[in-house]
Amino acid sequence: MAAPSLVSQTLTSALDSQLREMYGRAAYTHKTHQKMADNYVARYKRIKIAEIVLSAATASSLLIAIFGDKPIGTIIGAILSAILLGFTLYFKEASLGEQGQLHTEVGAKLWGAREALLSLLVDLQDGRSMDEVRRERDRLNAALEDIYKAAPRTNAKAYAAAQKALKDSEELFFTDEELNKMLPKQLSTKQKQL
């Protein structure tokens, strides 16, 4: 029969592994929703700029038609006006701003859950009772399930951007030097080393 401390270490290790997996999934999903929101905002801005340019071009061509007394201005104005109408209808149906906001809200909820999981991992290492950690894990798991159920769908492009941001750009992490610059001096690791 295994020694009680060995069983306890195995159980702690299994719980730690599960919490780390939950943290990783929450971090990836959080970043993916951030990237989806960024994509919607970028598309929104591009369409708005296109609408402004098309409006200016349409107005200019119609002014040329009025003052230049040439039918080409009217033809160009009509074509540009039709394109502008297409952009406006697409923009109305796509609801890019609303979609971006939904992803931002989901990302904010996931950020909270991710940070709670990180705190739980720290608590586990600091000796918090496994029963307390399990209860909190179960509560967080239920909260994450509710967030995932209500979340809008993401796409492969946003996931790839999230993967790049987390793996290559390390957007989720700070170096000790960066943290030392952000934190008050009394919390600096340089100060603690003295």
Results as ranks from 00 to 15, higher is better:
residue 6 L to M: 00
residue 6 L to I: 12
residue 8 S to F: 03
residue 9 Q to A: 14
residue 9 Q to G: 05
residue 9 Q to V: 04
residue 12 T to Y: 00
residue 13 S to G: 15
residue 16 D to S: 11
residue 20 R to S: 14
residue 20 R to Y: 09
residue 21 E to I: 04
residue 23 Y to A: 12
residue 25 R to Q: 12
residue 26 A to P: 07
residue 29 T to Q: 08
residue 30 H to M: 14
residue 32 T to M: 05
residue 35 K to G: 04
residue 36 M to P: 05
residue 37 A to I: 01
residue 41 V to H: 06
residue 41 V to L: 10
residue 41 V to A: 10
residue 42 A to Y: 10
residue 47 I to M: 01
residue 47 I to P: 02
residue 48 K to Q: 02
residue 53 V to S: 03
residue 55 S to A: 15
residue 55 S to H: 09
residue 60 S to G: 06
residue 62 L to F: 13
residue 64 I to Y: 04
residue 66 I to K: 12
residue 68 G to M: 08
residue 68 G to C: 10
residue 68 G to D: 14
residue 72 I to E: 04
residue 74 T to K: 14
residue 76 I to V: 15
residue 77 G to W: 08
residue 78 A to G: 14
residue 79 I to D: 10
residue 79 I to R: 05
residue 80 L to K: 05
residue 80 L to Q: 07
residue 85 L to W: 11
residue 87 F to K: 05
residue 88 T to Q: 03
residue 91 F to Q: 04
residue 97 G to D: 08
residue 97 G to M: 09
residue 101 Q to R: 10
residue 102 L to F: 09
residue 105 E to H: 07
residue 106 V to A: 04
residue 111 W to K: 11
residue 113 A to H: 10
residue 116 A to M: 04
residue 117 L to Q: 08
residue 117 L to E: 13
residue 121 L to D: 02
residue 124 L to C: 06
residue 126 D to W: 01
residue 126 D to A: 11
residue 127 G to V: 02
residue 128 R to Q: 13
residue 130 M to Y: 06
residue 133 V to Q: 03
residue 134 R to A: 08
residue 140 L to G: 05
residue 143 A to S: 09
